[in-house]
C-alpha cells in the first residue's frame, strides 16, 4: 500500500499548553482515515497541520512523499490543488453565492470554457444532494446541513485526490449523516479518493472508516482498524466506543 500522508513524531504546543506529544500516523492511498478523540484532544489541530494552516513545533509530515515543511511556494500551491478541505463550520465565502463559491476554484485554476464550468457546478451541487436552486443562494440563506453540503461541493470542485473533513456529520440529522457517509464512500470508490476526517460519529466510524487514530491526553493511544483497536484493552478505548453500553460491539 502506498502511504499518502505520513506524520512522524509530531509535537505541538500552544504556549505552555502541550497538545501533541510525539504523535505519528500513516494514511494509505484510497482509505478513509479518521482522527478520533475527545473534545480538545487536538484532532482539528493535527488536521490543520496536515493542510499547512499550522506548523508543529517538531516532527515532520510527508504528503504524497514530500515533506510539507520544505516545499517552495509554488510546490505548496500545486499541493493545495490536490486536496479539498471541508471546515467544521463550512467556511463558505459569505459574500458569494454557493455557485460562485464553487466557480472561484475553476476560474482560478482551470481554463475550462464557462459552459463546462456551469455544468460542473450544477453537477457538484446535485452530487452533494443540494437542490438545484441552491446555486443562487448565499451562505446566510442556507441551513447548517446545506452549508456542509455546499462546502463539500466546493471541496470536491477540482476533483481532488485527497479530502480533509473536519466533523462532516456534526450538526446533521441522522438520516443526512448516513447519506453523507454513503456519498463519501462512493466518491472514495469511484474517484479513488483518500479521505482524512475528524469525527465523533460512531456510526460513521463503524460503517465507512477503514482505519483511525485515537488521540487522548497528548498521546496517540491506538491506531488501526476498528477490530484491531477494540482488541486492545484500554479503559479509554472502552469508554470512547462505549463498549459496555449501547455502542459498537466487537
Amino acid at each position: 500500500m502506498n502511504p499518502i500522508i505520513e506524520a512522524r513524531e509530531i509535537v505541538t504546543a500552544f504556549g505552555e499548553n502541550l497538545i501533541h506529544d510525539s504523535i505519528s500516523c500513516t494514511v494509505y492511498e484510497n482509505e478513509i482515515y479518521a482522527l478520533l478523540g475527545g473534545s480538545g484532544s487536538g484532532k482539528s489541530t493535527l488536521l490543520r497541520e496536515m493542510i499547512m494552516l499550522e506548523t508543529p513545533n517538531s516532527g515532520s509530515i510527508h504528503i504524497f512523499g514530500d515533506n510539507i515543511a520544505n516545499l517552495s511556494l509554488q510546490e505548496a500551491q500545486i499541493l493545495r490543488q490536490k486536496w479539498g478541505v471541508l471546515f467544521q463550520s463550512g467556511a463558505l465565502y459569505s459574500s458569494l453565492t454557493v455557485g460562485e463559491n464553487i466557480a472561484l476554484l475553476y476560474q482560478e485554476y482551470t481554463n475550462l470554457p464557462p459552459k463546462l464550468i456551469q455544468e460542473l457546478i450544477r453537477l457538484k451541487i446535485d452530487l452533494v444532494g443540494l437542490p438545484a436552486h441552491a446555486i443562487h443562494l448565499y451562505p446566510n440563506q442556507l441551513s447548517g446541513g446545506m452549508i456542509k453540503r455546499a462546502a463539500l461541493a466546493r471541496a470536491l470542485a477540482l476533483d481532488p485526490k485527497l479530502l480533509f473533513l473536519d466533523e462532516p456529520t456534526s450538526g446533521l440529522d441522522p438520516f443526512s449523516s448516513r447519506q453523507f457517509d454513503a456519498l463519501i464512500q462512493q466518491l472514495r470508490d469511484l474517484l479513488g479518493l483518500t479521505v482524512v476526517m475528524v469525527t465523533h460519529d460512531l456510526d460513521t466510524i463503524h460503517t465507512i472508516v477503514d482505519r483511525f487514530l485515537l488521540l487522548e491526553d497528548t498521546k496517540a493511544i491506538a491506531q488501526g482498524t476498528l477490530a484491531e483497536v477494540l482488541a486492545i484493552n484500554h479503559p479509554s478505548i472502552d469508554y470512547f466506543f462505549q463498549k459496555e453500553t449501547h455502542g459498537i460491539q466487537s
Binding site: L112, L116, E119, L120, L123, L156, D159
Partner: peptide
C-alpha cells in the same frame, strides 16, 4: 476519468 471528464462528454 474524473467528474470534469464525465461532464465534458455529457455536455
Amino acid at each position: 476519468l474524473d467528474s470534469a471528464g464525465v461532464a465534458l462528454v455529457h455536455l
